[in-house]
Every structure is written in C-alpha cells, then in structure tokens.
C-alpha cells in the first residue's frame, strides 16, 4: 500500500530533518520502500517549508506526493498552504499551540479528516528544555499516531541522524512525542 506523508512548518523548525528521519526509519530500519523529497531555495529560508515522504511495500515509481494521506503541520501558515489537496479521510497532525484551528474546522469536517493534536513545541520547551527538538517530538507523535514507522526503527534513525553528543536529549524528545495520546 502506498502512503503519502507531508510535513510542513516554517524554516528553522527542522521540518526537512524530520522528513529525512522518517524516510530513514522506514527504508533502512523497517525495510519499506521510501522516497523523500523537499522544497528548495528561498522557500526554505523563513516562510513555509515542507518535506514529503512516500512509503510503499511495492516499488515506488512516481516519487512525489499526489494527495497526502497524512499531513503534519507545525505552523499555521504551512497548514493553510498545504492542506487543500489532502485525501478525504486522511490524518492531520497539528501542533495546537502554533495553529488557529477554527480556520480549518470546516475543511476537516467536510473531508472527514482525522485530526490529532500534538503539543510538540510546548513539550520540547517544558519537558526537554530545548525548543529546537520540537521536530523530534513530532516524529514520536507521527510514529505513535500513524504507525507508518515503528518505534524501534524511528529510534535507530534518530540516533543515525543527530549530531554526536545530542543523542540523549533527542531520544527523550522522541519518547515524549511517542507518549502523546494524540487527542
């Protein structure tokens, strides 16, 4: 089965790294075919930033997202920019502290979107003491809520991707995200 995932936020939130870690977890450690792509250039500096991951048990031909099954939004601007082509019945994960939910309420209802809230920025700040690991908290939430990548594979992918010396904080961040109930 083909699953299309899009993670979006603003530049500096580590959105691209989140996409790479999801891709790595799936391809190297869960053994699922995976393609990760990202938007480049001025878009990635400031403004809305996005990465896309396609996962499939079979060979992936067309490498880009056509219509996301899962949208992860870490900023309001990104949510508005990238929500419109979501699949009906798809999964939406938002950081409620970064988003004005009322603006998408109609869309969620109309398209039967399964909405999950993951307070990743607050969690990163308050539980880990590092705002910059919000992306890793979000990866934990993605793993738990969507099940597209396993807990253990994701952990390995994080250890494989973060700078030496930061492993402990990052795994803490991941577990904090994984512990969220997503409601």
């Amino acid at each position: 089965m083909r699953t299309e995932l899009r993670i979006a936020g603003f530049g500096g939130q580590g959105v691209i790294l989140a996409g790479i870690i999801v891709g790595k977890a799936a391809s190297l450690f869960d053994g699922i075919n995976t393609v990760q792509t990202q938007s480049y250039g001025p878009e990635t500096r400031g403004g809305a930033s996005k990465t896309e991951v396609v996962l499939c048990d079979d060979e992936i031909h067309y490498p880009k997202v056509i219509s996301p099954d899962i949208l992860v939004a870490m900023s309001h601007e990104a949510l508005i920019a990238y929500i419109s082509d979501m699949k009906d019945g798809g999964t939406l994960i938002i950081d409620p502290d970064m988003i004005n939910e009322s603006e998408i309420a109609d869309f969620v209802k109309k398209h039967n979107i399964k909405l999950h809230r993951a307070k990743v920025t607050k969690t990163a700040e308050n539980e880990i003491g590092l705002r910059i690991v919000a992306n890793i908290v979000m990866i934990g939430a993605i793993s738990k809520i969507t099940q597209v990548i396993s807990h253990d594979a994701t952990k390995e992918a994080i250890l494989d991707s973060v700078p030496p010396g930061t492993e402990k904080k990052n795994i803490q961040a991941f577990e904090a995200g994984y512990a969220m109930d997503g409601n």
């Binding site: 391809s27 075919n33 995976t34 393609v35 792509t37 480049y40 490498p63």
Partner: peptide, 9 residues
C-alpha cells in the same frame, strides 16, 4: 534536479 535531490535507499 529531481534525482539529484531526492532521497532513497
């Protein structure tokens, strides 16, 4: 650029 920048195993 698609092949240059996309990630796969």
């Amino acid at each position: 650029e698609v092949i240059g920048h996309m990630r796969e195993k």
